[in-house]
Each structure stands twice: as structure tokens, then as C-alpha cells.
């Protein structure tokens, strides 16, 4: 088994699950953020393995089902599977629906031979937002695709979310990842398509099939050399700070009618009514330039001017 897998890693996306060698269970770890569809992806895979005659064990954490929590699912299949969980350093394939979640689970990947498939889309958790000002630094993982591919030889990171959105349904990103996964497991392509069609809503089958193709094509086009130079398509994971182009809110006192809307709606509580019952920016240092006060002032008394 080991030798087979070593060979596999030397070329692009050679199947790890050669049917004849599946005596040792194949471990696939699927991770992401609550609400993304980790469970759906793992169910597709588990059903497919079952159909192919393998014994499958799947265990998942969906305690974080509340949107935004970390969710993972272990899928193990082979002739005989005993434990439902994958030990650290034993995952043959790690599929990440979100970039930082992928990084979090990297220690589970088999050293040298493990295959890392990731969507580069970023879901910044609230606790990583240290400052709500536009363009402010946050605590999100700084590692780029280029960094990771230097550590892991089999790193396939694509901007699945954007590609799927361009196809017309952002949720098809999961299918795109399944397309990428399908190149690493030795199951017939048509079986993949059948099983995916059963799991996705009937109206979206077309888009999902296109996403599946895109995922497969992506792996075929994949060029690790370009990636190492940081020229990969997925380079967009690098931070692009939002340009602060607006000045602090300016209040036209003569127009303000003291309705209190801006004061109550400002998320940072920077506004208050002064002794003349006119709105005033009392805590300018907290203002994030979100423009909610400007939008909801019925008297057009607040404006955030564009910096020329």
C-alpha cells in the first residue's frame, strides 16, 4: 500500500484508491465551516464507496451545525474498516471547503503522500476580526497557496466558490471539489455523476455537472511550478486591503431633525444627540465608515464625502 501511494504522489493526481489495494482502508477527511455542506460532500462519497462494494465508516461532528462553527467528517472505506475515525497523520485525502479550516486539519494528512484539496475561499470568523475598520488587519491565517504547496507536494487549491458562482450557483462549489476529489479516487466517472445527481436539488443538476467537469479539468491543468512562483489562479487568497476612500461623516446641523435614527443604528455607537438635540459624531475614532447613518438619515443631514 505505501509503495503504491508513494508512486501516486510522484505524478499529478494518480488515484490513491486503486481497487485492488483497498485492503487497507482509504481515509478521506472532509472539513469546512458550518452550513457549507461538509456533511453533504461526505454523504456523496460514502454512498459511492458503498455502491462500489466497500465497507464504509463515517463519523462526523455536526455539533457546530450553528452557522460558522468548524465541521468535519471522517470517511474511511476498504475491504474491512474497524475504526470510524482517522488518526493524526493518516488521511490519504483532505478536502477543505474553506481555506483556514484546511490549514487547521493539515496535521491529519499523511506525510509525503497525502493529497490536500482545498477551496481558497475565506470565511473570516468574527473572532478573527480585531478591528472592524475597512482594510484593518485581521487574525485570519496568513498562509497562501504558494506557501502551502511548498510544504505539501500534492496541494490542489482552487477558487471553487468564485468559479461556481460564475456558473450560476455558489453552492455548486462543493461539487467542484468533488470533481477534484474524483481524480484522486479510482471510481468510474459516470458513477460519480449518478450519485451527485441524486444528492443535489433536481433543478441544479446541470450546473453541478458543469462544476464537476471544472473540478476535473482544474486538476488536469494544474501546474505546481507556476504555483510555487505564486502565479497560480488561486493566488487571490492573498489579502487585498480595502481602500479607505471616504472621510468621516459630516453632519449638516440645519437639516437634522433629531429623529435619533442615526444614533440608534450606528453599530459602533459613535453618534449622539448634543444639547441642541442635533446629531454629533462624538466618537470619531470608532467610526468604521460603514455609511449606515448616511443611508438611513431621512433628512440627508449626514454625508460621508469621497476623498478626491
Amino acid at each position: 500500500m505505501m509503495t503504491e501511494l508513494n508512486q501516486a504522489s510522484s505524478k499529478n493526481a494518480q488515484p490513491v484508491a486503486q481497487t485492488q489495494v483497498a485492503k487497507v482502508p482509504v481515509n478521506v477527511l472532509i472539513v469546512g465551516v458550518g452550513g457549507q455542506g461538509v456533511i453533504m460532500v461526505s454523504k456523496v462519497l460514502a454512498s459511492l464507496c458503498q455502491q462500489q462494494g466497500y465497507e464504509v465508516k463515517q463519523s462526523e461532528v455536526h455539533g457546530m451545525a450553528k452557522r460558522g462553527g468548524s465541521v468535519f467528517s471522517h470517511v474511511r472505506f476498504g475491504e474491512k474498516v474497524y475504526s470510524p475515525t482517522i488518526p493524526v497523520g493518516q488521511a490519504d485525502v483532505l478536502v477543505a471547503l474553506e481555506w483556514a479550516e484546511g490549514l487547521r486539519w493539515l496535521p491529519y494528512l499523511k506525510p509525503e503522500t497525502g493529497i490536500f484539496i482545498a477551496d481558497t475561499q475565506k470565511i473570516v470568523p468574527p473572532f478573527a476580526c480585531r478591528d472592524r475598520k475597512h482594510g484593518a488587519a485581521n487574525g485570519y491565517a496568513k498562509e497562501t497557496v504558494a506557501d502551502i504547496s511548498q510544504m505539501i507536494s500534492n496541494c490542489y487549491a482552487a477558487d471553487a466558490g468564485t468559479t461556481a458562482a460564475e456558473l450560476g450557483n455558489a453552492r455548486a462549489a462543493n461539487t467542484l471539489l468533488l470533481g477534484m476529489l474524483s481524480t484522486t479516487l479510482d471510481f468510474p466517472e459516470s458513477e460519480w455523476r449518478d450519485i451527485i445527481s441524486k444528492f443535489v436539488p433536481p433543478k441544479t443538476i446541470d450546473i453541478n455537472m458543469q462544476a464537476f467537469d471544472q473540478g476535473r479539468e482544474w486538476v488536469e491543468r494544474y501546474d505546481p511550478a507556476a504555483l510555487a512562483q505564486g502565479q497560480a489562479e488561486a493566488g487571490s487568497v492573498a489579502q487585498q486591503p480595502h481602500q479607505v476612500q471616504f472621510e468621516l461623516p459630516v453632519i449638516t446641523e440645519a437639516w437634522c431633525k433629531s429623529c435619533d435614527i442615526c444614533v440608534k443604528f450606528c453599530p459602533e455607537r459613535c453618534l449622539s444627540l448634543n444639547e441642541n438635540q442635533v446629531a454629533e459624531l462624538t466618537k470619531p475614532e470608532l467610526c468604521t465608515l460603514c455609511r449606515i447613518c448616511e443611508r438611513l438619515c431621512p433628512d440627508f443631514a449626514i454625508s460621508l464625502n469621497y476623498k478626491h
Binding site: 440645519a254 437639516w255 433629531s258 435614527i261 431621512p298 433628512d299 440627508f300 443631514a301 454625508s303 464625502n305
Partner: peptide
């Protein structure tokens, strides 16, 4: 970059609507 004042007859302001009237929004 929309600035509402490009579209207003500023000499007519403040407008006659009551405080907080949704029509302004």
C-alpha cells in the same frame, strides 16, 4: 460615490417631512 446633494434643490432644505419619516430614505 453617489452624493445625494448633486440631485437636491438645497435651498429648499430642511424638507417639510416630520422627523424620522421614511419617505426621505
Amino acid at each position: 460615490k453617489f452624493n445625494i446633494r448633486d440631485y437636491l434643490r438645497e435651498h429648499m432644505f430642511p424638507h417639510f417631512l416630520c422627523p424620522g419619516c421614511g419617505h426621505g430614505i
